[in-house]
């Protein structure tokens, strides 16, 4: 064992402040009275993102779907299809979340 080892392993253990347990417990008990934090709804977000991806892919891959969609968009005016898709997807997520929140009440 060299000098480094001797010095580093021979350091005396210090005593924490006597009131440390009291301070910790005050904080812990305060914490335990708080309502648990709301978890982020990862599953719902993932499901909505997956649905959005599927819808976009279907729209791009199937002319039968693309044509009526384009007609609707033309009716609505000069709207970029991608922007419209994102907007509709967002709206679907919002409505889905509201529906899920309503169901869980």
């Amino acid at each position: 064992m060299d000098e480094f080892d001797r010095i580093l392993s021979s350091e005396a253990s210090l005593e924490p402040a006597p009131d440390l347990p009291r301070r910790v417990m005050t904080e812990v008990l305060r914490e335990s009275r708080l309502p648990p934090p709301l978890p982020f709804p990862w599953r719902r977000v993932a499901a909505a993102a997956a649905l959005l991806g599927i819808a976009n892919t279907a729209l791009a891959a199937m002319p039968a779907l693309r044509e009526p969609t384009q007609r609707v968009l033309t009716t609505l005016g000069d709207v970029d299809p991608m922007s419209a898709g994102v907007a509709l997807g967002t709206l679907a997520i919002v409505l889905g979340t509201l529906w899920a929140a309503w169901r869980s009440d």
């Binding site: 253990s13 210090l14 440390l20 347990p21 417990m25 008990l29």
Partner: peptide
């Protein structure tokens, strides 16, 4: 929650020295 005090009392010294 009050049972946590036992853990604090047993581990305050090792954790404090680790922090120090």
């Amino acid at each position: 929650s009050a049972a946590f005090e036992g853990i604090v009392r047993r581990w305050q010294r090792p954790l404090y020295n680790l922090a120090w």
